[in-house]
């Protein structure tokens, strides 16, 4: 069995590394993928505030990219986008397009 022995972990169930959930990638759960359409985007950041997974990345107050390592593909960003600047595609579709 892998993992540390009881002598190597902090006592009391304490987790010392704040935010280490980043080591666990939830992107593999995704069956639908949001695709950003830059031409339509007005950088209102609604997608950023509604994302449950902090997977909409911002830079200097603008939309930067989706973090597909964590995006679970729920689609709330696309549903709330006022400019149709986010399109949901199935992962299969999106992967095929990636391969092109």
């Amino acid at each position: 069995m892998s993992g540390e022995s009881w002598k190597e972990i902090p006592i009391g169930g304490v987790i010392e590394k704040a935010g280490n959930s980043k080591e666990y990638k939830t992107g593999s759960w995704r069956s639908n993928r949001p695709i950003h359409v830059p031409d339509k985007c007005i950088h209102c950041m609604i997608c950023w505030i509604v994302c449950p997974d902090c997977a909409v990345k911002a830079k200097d107050g603008n939309f930067s990219h989706f973090d597909y390592d964590y995006c679970k593909g729920c689609g709330n960003c696309a549903a709330r986008c006022p400019k149709d600047a986010i399109v949901m595609k199935t992962e299969l579709e999106a992967q095929k397009e990636d391969e092109k």
Partner: peptide, 27 residues
């Protein structure tokens, strides 16, 4: 440990399943 150490935050009382619960009991 103290929760009031906001500069170096830690988590207390997580969900501890079969991977580590036993180790914590062993401690």
């Amino acid at each position: 440990y103290t929760l009031l150490n906001t500069d170096n935050p830690h988590t207390v009382g997580p969900l501890d399943l079969y991977d580590y619960y036993f180790e914590h009991k062993r401690q």
